[in-house]
């Protein structure tokens, strides 16, 4: 899923400072699962914003609402009648959701309440870690199922570098060396000899480096 976290209150407050009537718009997909921008977080953020506003002697009217997804237009349509009554939408979805809502309602500012962090997993309740950088050219079959692009701090395809120490990355002792994990996995698969296979220089054109990407499936288009 896409993992995100709420922006600092100060930043959000500055963003919405000019407005007195806003929609705080949650998303029931990824950001609900990672407790960043679901219905519950909409309630908490709205309460905090009202408290903050009222203590300054100002008012704010907040419509709390959550869409099934902010990345599909049929859901975004649900707020069409609501939008003209407000001055701004504070979206708690990932960057994709914020932009998609903005595309549908060009006449109203759509602002981001969360920072979109990464594509990752829930290791345990309240603890998420990165697994994928969406490079568009998966190499997991070559590296024992562990991604060197996202899990090595330098994205080395032929790692580890000399900074791997006690299984930890040189960047920070809390980061597990991705290549240590790859080597351990290759060992447990009985494929350690694969370590010596040279992985050639990567084609990054399928990644962000090729410009904004799209996927088209003609068989599915209407």
């Amino acid at each position: 899923m896409i993992v995100g976290e709420r922006k600092p209150m100060e930043e959000i407050e500055a963003m919405i400072d000019p407005f007195e009537k806003i929609i705080v718009l949650g998303c029931r997909e990824c950001v609900t699962v990672c407790s960043a921008g679901g219905e519950k977080e909409v309630g908490i953020l709205s309460a905090a914003l009202r408290l903050s506003r009222e203590q300054k002697g100002r008012t704010i009217e907040i419509k709390e609402f959550a869409l099934e997804r902010q990345c599909d237009h049929e859901y975004i349509e649900q707020i069409r009648s609501m939008v003209p009554n407000y001055q701004a939408v504070l979206s708690m979805a990932c960057g994709a959701g914020v932009q998609f809502v903005a595309e549908f309602y060009p006449e109203i500012p759509v602002l981001p309440a969360i920072n979109t962090n990464f594509i990752g997993v829930t290791e345990e309740q309240g603890y998420w870690t990165e697994r994928c950088q969406a490079c568009g050219n998966c190499v997991l079959h070559l590296t024992g199922g562990i991604c060197p692009v996202s899990r090595c701090s330098k994205s080395l395809l032929n790692g580890p570098c000399g900074g791997s120490s006690d299984g930890k990355c040189e960047v920070n002792k809390e980061i597990v060396c991705g290549w240590q994990l790859i080597i351990e996995r290759l060992k447990s698969l009985g494929q350690l000899e694969r370590y010596e296979e040279y992985i050639p220089i990567k084609d990054w054109s399928t990644s962000r480096d090729g410009g904004p990407r799209k996927v088209v499936r003609e068989d599915l288009r209407l």
Binding site: M9, E10, L51
Partner: peptide, 8 residues
Amino acid sequence: KLLDEIGF
């Protein structure tokens, strides 16, 4: 922490 953040 949240209350501190908003100065409440």
